[in-house]
Structure formats: C-alpha cells, structure tokens
Amino acid sequence: MPEDPEVNQNRFGTGVGNNTQRRLGNVNDQSKCACSCGCITAEDPRFAELKSYIDSLNQEQGITMPVLQEAQRSFGYLPLEVQKFISENTGVPLAEIYGVATFYSQFAIEPKGRHHIGVCMGTACYVKGSQKVLDKLVEELKVKVGCTTSDGKFTLEATRCLGCCGLAPCIMIDDDVFGKLDDVSRIPDILGKYE
C-alpha cells in the first residue's frame, strides 16, 4: 500500500490560515492548532444565544453577514468552533462562511488579546533594531507574530511606521508608545504594567 502522504506542508491540517501569516510577512511554521483552541467550549451559553438569533432571521435572505456580525459581537472573534456552529445551523457551507469572514476586515479569525502590541517595522525603527525588539517580545510572550497569548492578554503584531521615528525603535501597546527600546531588557517591565 502506498505510504500515507508525506506531511510536507505544515500548514495543512493545522487549520491555521497561511494567508494570515503571509500578510504579516511571517511564513514560518505555525504549530498552534485553531481546531483545538479550547477557549470556547461547546457548552458556552453564547452558542444558544446565537442559535436563537439565527432562528429569528428570515432564512430566505442572505443571512451569512448578519449572523457573522452577531457572532463577532458576542464572541469577539470567529474561530473554527463558531464558524462550524454557524454552518451547521444555517446550512451554508463552512468554506463560504470562512470566505466571508476572511474577506471583510470587520471579522477576526484569531482571538484578539486584551492588549494590542504593535511593533514598528518602519525603516527608522528597523535600522535601529526593531527586529531584536520583536524577537524579545516573541520570547517573553511565547507567541508568534500575529497571535495572541494563551491567557488572552496580548496580541502581538508587526506594524508599519508609527509616526514617532524620533523614538526608534518603538512599540505601541494599545494607545501608549514606548520608544528608544534599544535596550530590550526594559521590555519585561513594560509588559508588567498591563493586566
């Protein structure tokens, strides 16, 4: 019998969007598995609420958008479990739902942490060592770029010029800017300020 196909593309079967990563310029491996994220359990009461919302809609009309909007509002993001639930309860194929969810920027597939960290990758910051800053954050938070820490506290992203090049290299956490981060050992203290 032929061997099982060689698993030579780590993206497949992980259920993690390669595109998401490509957009962020990070095409390295992704071991996090969206299909077992575990943050939302089947017993979550929000599923029942979503079900009654779906039932309240007129099935004749395009219901994908309003249902996705409601789910986004209630869960904060649209992981596999939620999209699967929507597919099963509307009869709309999962791929179509996923297609809509990834087309409009109002929807998020990955959970968003309570705090958003943007690491500036603009030219000035880059030249001044923002890669080291990013690496340090990846190490401290134990997440990949574009992902959210398992405690849901931080989402780490790389951004374009933040407009404060004089402070390069700099990062932005929510609305606060932290500059002159050449000394990356300051980073744990900065993170410590956030709950």
């Binding site: 993206r11 497949f12 595109n19 969206a34 596999l80």
Partner: peptide, 23 residues
C-alpha cells in the same frame, strides 16, 4: 461546498475553510 474564495485581494485563494487540507 468544500471550496470557496478565501481572503481577499492578492491573498485570495480558492481553498477549504481555515486552510484545512482536503484530507
């Protein structure tokens, strides 16, 4: 309905949901 357009713009790809393998 296994396949659909996913993502947008240059990133558009015809693929199963969540980039699952067809397996």
């Amino acid at each position: 309905g296994v396949l659909d357009f996913t993502h947008r713009g240059f990133q558009t790809e015809v693929a199963p949901a969540f980039d699952f393998s067809m397996r």
